[in-house]
Design a protein around this nucleic acid. Structure first.
Lengths: 133, 133
DNA sequence: CTGCCTGCAAATAGTTTGCATTTGC
DNA sequence: GCAAATGCAAACTATTTGCAGGCAG
C-alpha cells in the first residue's frame, strides 16, 4: 500500500529472468554467477538488494528453510520443498496440505502464526551416489 | 560405534547445565553469556565446539529451523517448535504428528528422507505488543 | 530533474579453525 | 603420559550498508 516505487532496471530484470530459467533454488552467490554472464559489472550487493526487493513484491520467494545459506525461488505457486542435509540443495515437491494438522499448545494462544509448512530433510540422489565410496 | 572418546570437562558440564536450566532456545552466543557467569574465562570457540559435540552425542538438539542464527535445545523429547519472524525466538509446542501427511512427488523416489517436521512462523506475543506503537 | 538504484568497498554477524598450552583419565 | 580439550586470535562465509556517481521515468 505505502509501497515505495520500484524501477525496472536492467539488473533487476536480468536477475529475475535468470532465476526463472532454473528450477534449482540458487543462493544469492549462485544468482550472482548466473547474472554475471549477462552483466559482467554487476555487484553482489546489487544481487542481494534486488532479490530482497523482488521477494517483498512477491515476484519470487525467499525460502524459509533451515540451512546456512538463504535460497531463492522464482516459482511462487504453492508447493513444498525437500532439502539435502549433505549438499544443501532444495528440491520441489507438490504442495503438502497442512490444514488438517493437529496444532496444540498453550503458547499458540498468544502466538499469531501465519505460516505453517512441512520441512523434509534427507539425502539427495547425487549425494547418496557419492557416499558409495 | 567408532566414537572418539569424550571427556567431561568443566566447560562441557557447565554448558550442559546452563542449557538445561532454560526453556528458551539460546544461540551459541547466548549460551556463551550464560556460561560466562560461572566460568569467566571460557571462550566462544569452546562453546561452539561443545554445543556441536553434545549435539553429536544426542545430549542436546541443534535446532533445524529457518533463521539466521542456529539455536540449541536441551529438551531432547520429541516436540515441535514455533518461531517468531520478528525476534527469531523459538517456542516449544507439543509434538505434531506428521505420519499422516500425504507426501508425494517424483523426486521423493530418489530422495532418502529421514526427518519430516512442521515449521510454524508467526509473531510472538512480545513482538505483537511492541508493534502497538 | 529527481530520487531510486548501482558499483565498490568496508562493516557486520555468525561460525570455524590453527596453534601453543592445559587437563582429564 | 598422552590424547582430547581449552583460550585466543585470526580466518571464513554470508549478508548488509555507506557513499558518490548513474540512470529510469
Amino acid at each position: 500500500m505505502s509501497k515505495t516505487q520500484s524501477r525496472m532496471t536492467r539488473q533487476r530484470r536480468v536477475i529475475l529472468e535468470e532465476l526463472c530459467k532454473v528450477n534449482t533454488h540458487p543462493t544469492a552467490d549462485e544468482v550472482y554467477t548466473m547474472v554475471k554472464g549477462k552483466l559482467p559489472n554487476i555487484s553482489l550487493g546489487t544481487v542481494y538488494r534486488n532479490l530482497d526487493l523482488l521477494a517483498e513484491n512477491n515476484q519470487i520467494l525467499k525460502l524459509e528453510t533451515a540451512g546456512n545459506t538463504r535460497r531463492y525461488d522464482a516459482n511462487i505457486e504453492p508447493h513444498s520443498h525437500v532439502r539435502c542435509l549433505s549438499c544443501g540443495k532444495v528440491l520441489d515437491i507438490p504442495y503438502i496440505d497442512t490444514s488438517k494438522l493437529d496444532l496444540k499448545g498453550d503458547c499458540l494462544k498468544d502466538f499469531n502464526y501465519m505460516n505453517v509448512r512441512v520441512e523434509i530433510d534427507g539425502i539427495c540422489a547425487d549425494c547418496a551416489e557419492k557416499e558409495k565410496h
